[in-house]
Design a protein around this nucleic acid. Structure first.
Lengths: 196, 196, 196, 196
DNA sequence: CATGAATGAGCGTTCATTCAT
DNA sequence: CATGAATGAACGCTCATTCAT
């Protein structure tokens, strides 16, 4: 176990170094040498764990988003009411981004620079996140809370886009205010918008 | 007049070539040679009209977005009712993007890769667009249509983000559906969300 | 005459602008656009008077050096004594360079960057200057002032090199002392070295 | 040791390739690709050992001149008499240049094209060479061989300039005569010029 | 003669990636 | 597994020169 653990440690160190480097310098400006230095490994070592620079970026997304989604699922499954779930999702999304600003910067700003990611976008884990949102809305419809005539694929995107822009604006403003305070106003807006 | 016209023609040709090239290959992947070939000019000629590659990208944004905002302003000023205005804005936004998909791709995907643009983001013309949105919402509040307790800076971003993601999703899905059909569902969502 | 004069004026203006530009920025750093701006003409105009940038540099040398040599000839022909002539030549050389520092900079520093000049060096007007020096030394030998066994081609170069380095050092030191004060010490050195 | 030796070998190979390339084509005309080809390395490798092209040029000067000066110092320290020292210095200078004509070409012709070098000129190792010359002259004064009223800073430059021009002329004439034969005539000239 | 817009060849430098050790 | 020296493709940009007006 110690052996395996150690290996994963190194992979994690590289990934975290990449998050920090990409967030600080931007994906294109950050070099593999930067990441290696930050991770305390040789540049060549990175290629033992990741196929290439793009894979490193995409892996950050896949593994970290997966983690978030799993956690969000777990946390939301405790709730019954779709409105409460939706509100909680907004809170979780913004709080997590606030607590992991480097990761947020990579998600919001850098990830879009990966051709590979963008072309695979509709099939990524992000789809799972969209589904999570869609499921909650449908749940709300079944609970008689939300309108039946919602154009689901449209409102899902609108909801996600609202969260996304909220985080992006916060990042680009220099993170100079409390992001979580935006949660209730945004959640209210959509819950009212969804209501019957 | 002929002389001036011709010069502007060349500048426009370069800018349009850049929009096409950036949309097709992505900002970083597109080379100045690509743009020049597409515009039918020599590479060096581009530097007679634009300071550098980044300036080309930023100029696209500034001049084209300015055009859109002015047109939106003009079109919306004919309306009285804030709800109608908001609905119309959503329509205009999505229809324009649908009619100019390359430009849309540059706006949604490529522009964010410009460090220069992103750092200037809060001061760009995009702020004017945010203001336009904010003004309509405030107008709705004064008309007694929208809630007075809206967290304006939050809902502005949510609204813009929703439009933004709607377009981005459409682009990344390969523009394989009618974008304008998303207008009413999205507009409905926000109008209800804003209502008193 | 007015017509011809005007033309020569423009050629002169360009040449003087080139001297100033080359002296200030260096030959390679100075652009044709710089020279044109300084001369108050369009870039293309320069090519009506000079074959190319290199020709401009070489022409400065040829015409200005020719002027100097002619003047030196004239001024020295008044003297009889070879020692006096030599002393006067040193004075003239240093005083002229001091009075035309931009020209000096072009001679001492920039001219050597012209491949064309360097390859033609042994055949340039500089040879005439070397000959002028050689003639004076031979005159001194005939006047019984200088040794008969001087290796003429060696001492000519040594003499010129001494003047050259004296000017170069002054230029590179920022022209922060009186160059003409070096004349007598240098002249003394060579006159003694040449003496029988 | 093998490892270190090999690394130095590569650096040396690049430097020697640069000397050959700069001598043959001139500094500005020689490309990094030329140097790389000549050295048998990839272009990028050069940047592992030198900061940029200019650094390559300046490094040639610093390391090679330093070598010469040290060797000259060592060789001259064996002599007592200042006149003999001076004569030997002239010999060494010309013989070394004759034996390393590519290096000579870089010194005499190319180095002066480096803005960076020229601006640092008064502080370079060349100053050490000037000092070496000055020390010998002062030694001669103390030995009662040379005049006390020599304008030292003037005659130092004259002496160096004479050597410099002697080499330059030889190079530009196509190295078509024996440079070392100029040594005695030049040395004689200065020794007589310096004498009491 | 004069212009200056247009040209396009040319090059230094970076950096993701490889591979011998 | 790990290294880091070496690679070499790739590209933005400059600027001397041309030529249609």
């Amino acid at each position: 176990m110690g052996r395996v653990k150690k290996t994963n440690d190194k992979r994690d160190r590289i990934m975290n170094a990449a998050i920090a480097s990409f967030a600080q310098h931007g994906y294109h400006q950050a070099t593999i040498a930067d990441v290696a230095r930050e991770a305390g490994v040789a540049a060549g070592t990175i290629y033992l764990y990741f196929k290439n620079k793009d894979d490193l970026l995409v892996s950050i997304f896949e593994e970290k988003v997966q983690g978030f989604i799993q956690e969000f699922h777990r946390r939301l499954s405790q709730e019954e009411n779709a409105e409460v779930k939706l509100r909680k999702l907004v809170h979780l999304h913004l709080v997590e981004m606030q607590n992991h600003p480097d990761l947020a910067a990579v998600f919001q700003l850098e990830l879009r620079q990966s051709r590979h990611f963008m072309s695979a976008y509709p099939k990524t884990d992000l789809k799972v996140y969209f589904d999570l949102i869609g499921d909650i809305i449908e749940e709300g419809q079944q609970q008689g809370l939300f309108r039946k005539d919602l154009f689901l694929s449209a409102v899902k995107k609108a909801f996600f886009g609202a969260l996304d822009e909220t985080v992006t604006s916060w990042l680009l403003a220099g993170k100079n205010y409390d992001l979580s305070q935006m949660a209730d106003p945004v959640a209210d807006l959509f819950i009212r918008g969804f209501r019957d």
